[in-house]
Each structure stands twice: as structure tokens, then as C-alpha cells.
């Protein structure tokens, strides 16, 4: 009991508006080491905006995003120097986009995509970069012979696997995922979800997964946050929220899935 565990990420009173329209309103939550947090809600509920704010892709209007770095020094990403933030983004954090086109360099080979973060932190041995890329291709169950192929020659599911490998190669502590299985057909989705679940466990990654698909949330997330109109209306353990929703909006969401 001597170790006082701190949250990996503590978000406090985060707000973001587009012009007159508030998109995220006063959101607070904590993410614990090793935890997968699901954020669910309909499109327009503010969940993707929240994720983009966390990733530093959008400027927030108010609030704090305190991240506990590997070095053990908590840092508020809202006020942190851009250099520190950008460094974290390519070392300790990962971001898996819904559309792999946004998260991959489409005109560079699979091997280059996987190696980029390593080269960014100083790896300069071509042979080693290649063997690391190969081991990650097998980790995400992709054929090694595709290492020199361009992402555009891959199926949607493979592109998404490649994006995951490209992010995990530096062994990040926190990965943000925006609808990681969106746009894929059901059987491909199921395999990918399996893979994500296995990798998250294997590498002890904490993750925040934004999805409108409650099935995805149930499979991946330990805990859920339900958003509506930019606000968190309910949160709790995944099974609790889905099996016994308290808020009427969550009840509506859950029942619409059941009836679908």
C-alpha cells in the first residue's frame, strides 16, 4: 500500500466551442494506467472533438489535461510548451484515426510507415528498422512480403492494422482511437477488435476509444463515458452502463442497439 497510484490522465473542466456552438462542455474524467476508456454517443455529441482536444489537435477554450509522463512528472498539456507536447505525441502517445488515410503516409511503404516514429527518435540503422518493421507486421498479423507495398494497395482492415503498428512501435503508454473499426465490414471488424484487445493487453497500453458502436465499446472498454450535447451524461463500468443504464439518453442508445 506504499505506492499511491496516480491517474495516467486527468481531465478537468474541459470546454471547447466552435463559434457560438459549444462542442465540449465542462468535461472531467480520469484514466488509470492500463485502463481502456470508451467514449460513446451519437455523432455530434462532442466525443471526437474531445479526443482531438486531448491529442492537441484542437485548442481548448478552458480546462486542464494533466498527463503523468513516463519520467514521473505530471504535465498540463493545455499550458505545456508545444515542443513537449509534440515530443509526447510521437513517443508516449499514439493516435489511431478512423480513416487510415489521415493516420498513414499513403505515399510511403508499410515499412517506412512503421519506422517513422523510430527514425524520429534517432534510429539510424536501416537493417534494424526493417527487422523491427517486420516483427510489427507479424504482430498485427500482416504478411511480411507486403513490407514495401504502399498503403493504398491494402484493404481497409489492413490499413488499420498498419496504422496500429505504426503507433505501437515506440511502445506508447496511451493510445487514442477514433472509431478504429468504423467503415469496415463486420467480419473484418471482429478480427480487428480481437487484435486491438490482445495488443492492448500484451503491451499494457492505456487507451481512450471513441465510438458510436456500443458493441465495440463493450468489447474493448473497461469503463464507459456517455456523451450528449458536449456533456458527459453518464459514466461507469462498461457492463454496468450497458446493462443497467441510468440516464434516459443512455437507455435510448442501448435500446436502439438492441432493437437494431
Amino acid at each position: 500500500m506504499s505506492v499511491i497510484e496516480r491517474p495516467l490522465l486527468a481531465v478537468e473542466n474541459l470546454s471547447k466551442a466552435f463559434g457560438a456552438r459549444p462542442a465540449v462542455r465542462d468535461v472531467s474524467f480520469s484514466l488509470w494506467p492500463g485502463e481502456v476508456l470508451g467514449i460513446v454517443g451519437e455523432s455530434g455529441s462532442g466525443k471526437s472533438t474531445l479526443l482531438n482536444c486531448l491529442a492537441g489537435r484542437m485548442q481548448v477554450d478552458a480546462g486542464r489535461i494533466v498527463y503523468d509522463t513516463a519520467a514521473g512528472a505530471p504535465i498540463d498539456l493545455v499550458t505545456a510548451a508545444e515542443s513537449a507536447r509534440r515530443h509526447l505525441m510521437r513517443t508516449e502517445w499514439g493516435f489511431v484515426q478512423q480513416n487510415p488515410r489521415d493516420g498513414l503516409r499513403m505515399d510511403f511503404s508499410a515499412g517506412a510507415n512503421i519506422g517513422e516514429r523510430l527514425m524520429a527518435i534517432g534510429d539510424r540503422n536501416y537493417a534494424q528498422l526493417r527487422s523491427t518493421a517486420e516483427s510489427w507486421l507479424s504482430a498485427v498479423e500482416m504478411p511480411l512480403r507486403r513490407i514495401d507495398d504502399l498503403p493504398r494497395t491494402f484493404s481497409g482492415g489492413m490499413q488499420q492494422r498498419l496504422q496500429i503498428a505504426r503507433n505501437l512501435v515506440t511502445r506508447p503508454r496511451l493510445v487514442l482511437m477514433d472509431e478504429p473499426t468504423g467503415g469496415l465490414d463486420v467480419s473484418v471488424q471482429a478480427r480487428l477488435l480481437d487484435l486491438i484487445r490482445r495488443l492492448v493487453q500484451q503491451f499494457q497500453v492505456s487507451a481512450i476509444v471513441v465510438t458510436h458502436d456500443l458493441g465495440v465499446a463493450r468489447l474493448l472498454a473497461h469503463r464507459l463515458m456517455v456523451m450528449k450535447d458536449g456533456m458527459v451524461v453518464e459514466e461507469g463500468l462498461t457492463d454496468q452502463v450497458l446493462d443497467d443504464p441510468q440516464h434516459e439518453y443512455t437507455q435510448l442508445l442501448v435500446s436502439s442497439v438492441l432493437s437494431a
Binding site: 510511403f108 511503404s109 519506422g115 527514425m119 539510424r124 536501416y126
Partner: peptide
């Protein structure tokens, strides 16, 4: 880093 990605490629 991106410069090296090009050389790698």
C-alpha cells in the same frame, strides 16, 4: 525524422 523516412523509402 520525416526526412529519414524518405531516405528509408
Amino acid at each position: 525524422g520525416a526526412m529519414h523516412v524518405k531516405l528509408y523509402e
